[in-house]
Design a protein around this nucleic acid. Structure first.
Length: 281
DNA sequence: GACTAAGTCAATT
DNA sequence: AATTGACTTAGTC
């Protein structure tokens, strides 16, 4: 039986739920997050069926984004103007479709309240960092290239695991297989590439330290410095687009000078500049 | 048939 | 754009 390709459906309705379609779109993107408009574009480009009745299905899709905990809204960086926030997939939701119909998941992905609150805190902190990092020069930022005062952890890259349990019920921490368009369409063939993108889980449980994150790993491929920080309280969740591989630090990059903020914002203890100039892992 | 995920419509922010 | 609720449809057990 020939495997259906994404071209096979023509004007027929593809056998994917809105959640599947949205997840495909998000996961196909380099940063693993997309603004709503790009999710729409992904779907309409691949599935001609969705070039009609756009009001209807786009409303339904938005409903899904808000309703399902598997989608998280990441505030847009002020230096990337545009409409709407970015939408990402909760990493613990990546195996949602395993062994199942793409039309219907076995179980709805739902976060425990405590985890949901913690995630909201972290995103609020991120929004604060947004304001902080991109504020006008007279802000609280002092870009000291010299001193490294009172850090919670001198070297977050060396010490910080991504910790904790995240999900209600028996959701697993790590996806058992990659989550690509191809793997959705052909669930038997995990993609090696996507496997390599996974951040390794810590071998042992450690006391919960702050969570370090990079702002944007894509920006890290450029010579420009970018920013990350330590977030309190520690969250079990860090989106792949934000996480600095704590076990596998981002190759070629290293937290460099702490940027001392008087008021980094709720939940943020310190902010770092990450520099590509220092070393490789 | 019960349960619940998915989809629709629509009011509201 | 995003959130939410009420409701219907439909897949799974």
């Amino acid at each position: 039986m020939p495997r259906p390709s994404r071209e096979s459906y023509g004007d027929q309705k593809p056998p994917y739920s809105y959640i599947s379609l949205t997840a495909m779109a998000i996961w196909s993107s380099p940063e693993k997050m997309l603004p709503l408009s790009d999710i729409y574009r992904f779907i309409t480009e691949r599935f001609p069926y969705y070039r009609r009745n756009t009001q209807r299905w786009q409303n339904s899709l938005r409903h899904n984004l808000s309703f399902n905990d598997c989608f998280i809204k990441i505030p847009r960086r002020p230096d990337r103007p545009g409409k709407g926030a970015y939408w990402a997939l909760h990493p613990a939701a990546l195996d949602m479709f395993e062994n199942g119909s793409l039309l219907r998941r076995r179980k709805r992905f739902k976060l425990m309240k405590t985890d949901k609150d913690r995630l909201e805190n972290e995103l609020a902190a991120l929004a604060n960092i947004n304001r902080f990092m991109f504020a006008p020069p007279q802000s609280a930022i002092q870009d000291t290239t010299a001193v490294a005062p009172q850090l919670v952890h001198q070297n977050p890259a060396a010490t910080l695991p991504v910790t904790g349990s995240t999900v209600a019920s028996s959701q697993v921490q790590r996806p058992k297989r990659s989550f690509t368009i191809e793997s959705l369409i052909s669930p038997d063939k995990p993609s090696v590439q996507a496997e390599e993108e996974q951040v390794a889980a810590p071998a042992t449980a450690a006391p919960a330290p702050p969570v370090a994150f990079l702002y944007n790993p894509v920006a890290m491929t450029t010579p420009a410095p970018c920013y990350g920080g330590l977030v309190h309280p520690p969250s079990a969740y860090v989106h792949p687009s934000l996480v600095m591989g704590l076990v596998h630090p981002h190759p070629g990059f290293y937290p460099q000078h702490p940027i001392v903020a008087e008021h980094p914002g709720a939940g943020v203890s310190s902010v770092f500049r990450f520099s590509p100039t220092l070393r490789s892992v």
